[in-house]
Design a protein around this nucleic acid. Structure first.
Lengths: 241, 241
DNA sequence: CGCGAATGTTACGGGACTGTGACGGCATGG
DNA sequence: CCATGCCGTCACAGTCCCGTAACATTCGCG
């Protein structure tokens, strides 16, 4: 589900020109997005330290660190690797387009742009990168996962998870009861073409179970020969009457 | 079922550079695929006139007709429209990535590539395009089989099945009332090119009946001299013509 | 009733699958 | 520079599953 379906898509805007920033903000709000505006790459990184937005809109020309450098950095870090990025560039900098796409941007927009074009591209990128998770709190059995605050609670008790454990649990909680093979989990939690051993999934499932503690570790079920799934009713052994 | 599960996936390789072609062939064979190599787009079209492969690996730079043109043509024809395509492109042609994906490719690989990466992407695309087992819940008599959750219930009571028992029951429930010989069951449940004793099927049928319990064991019927079938109405002897 | 073929039933050894602990690499932060 | 935390891989152990063999039973038929 796109966040544009359930709530507003959060868009991080990195733009030093106040006028353009206001235009972007206005356009995005009118288009149903929730903009978060900063002016420098450094501020952007600070903002990205918290909850990840659904999309980053980055100006090519920034004071200090350039938009390209920021893009490359975001692509280099696991946490932000899959964050959709749109580059804003001025007319006549066509050569930069190549560099921008090389740097990992998903799309680019040439200034001056029409609000219509901006929203079209934003929606397009959001749609393409969409199969994400609805904002809000997922609840399965004794588990509660806040996708915005990045918090997980077991019977109300807050626990700490590593990034991978969190994404794994989030994915499973988004589709409870559904069995996923190790490969499917790698595709959906780690990313499409990442070459990692199947068994690595087992390790993270174990670490996740340990982190969940005895109260909830059995919520993550092993389906022998098939994969793993989340069981909504723990303590219901499938034994016969 | 993907061919990668039962049998080797056939991959058409369109690459004019002999060295790279050999590397591709070697990598694919090691990865469990069955490559068919040609050097030009024309030869590729000829090869595609026969049995369709499971995947096409097309070099971007080809003598004469380009890989993009070939991709577009394949996407334009009904017969090859759904054929998964991966584009091979050289470093520095990143801009072509967009054109390639817009042209209808499912993925692209940048040369030079590692064998591991190649196989990861090939497998990923094959998985993504693999025909799925019909999702949903199959119901026959007192039996209910959830293909997604991998759960089986007898009169609402959940039971545990081993992987083979589950596949066997799933196949029978997908085609209730129809008689299958032991060999047919081996082909469909175990996979095509497996040589296993016929009697093994009997064993698993028994184990399945035991697992189903007295309430439903008679749903799996023996047709003497023919094989096994699932009877929708237990207690209703099949009326032959 | 007797016989052979087909099927049901039991037992068992090998192997596949998963759980578990440990290790080294890598990036981050001081 | 080191310390820390996270991650991916390896190796080992336990468990479960599966295919085969062997024996028992039932069915079909004369």
């Amino acid at each position: 589900m796109t966040r544009s379906e359930a709530g507003r898509a959060q868009v991080l805007v990195v733009e030093d020109d106040k006028g353009i920033q206001e235009l972007l903000r206005f356009t995005l709000v009118c288009g149903g997005c929730q903009p978060l505006c900063v002016e420098t790459a450094e501020q952007a990184e600070t903002a990205l330290g918290g909850t990840l937005p659904d999309l980053a809109l980055i100006d090519w020309m920034l004071p200090g660190k350039s938009g390209l450098a920021l893009t490359r950095k975001l692509r280099g870090e696991r946490r932000t690797r899959r964050l959709p990025i749109i580059i804003l560039t001025a007319r006549g900098e066509e050569a930069d387009r190549v560099a921008g796409l090389e740097g990992g941007a998903d799309d680019y927009i040439v200034k001056p742009f029409s609000p219509k074009e901006l929203m079209a591209r934003v929606q397009s990128v959001l749609r393409r990168c969409a199969p994400q998770f609805a904002a809000g709190t997922l609840t399965v059995g004794p588990l509660a996962l806040d996708t915005v605050a990045h918090e997980v609670r077991v019977a109300g008790q807050r626990i700490n998870l590593t990034p991978t454990e969190f994404r794994l649990l989030r994915f499973l909680m988004a589709n409870p009861g559904r069995v996923y093979s190790r490969q499917q989990l790698l595709d959906n939690v780690w990313g499409d073409h990442v070459y990692i051993e199947d068994r690595t999934v087992d390790i993270h499932v174990r670490r996740l179970r340990v982190a969940l503690g005895p109260a909830a570790e059995h919520v993550v079920e092993t389906v022998r020969g098939a994969g793993y799934k989340l069981c909504a009713q723990p303590g219901t052994p499938p034994s016969e009457a």
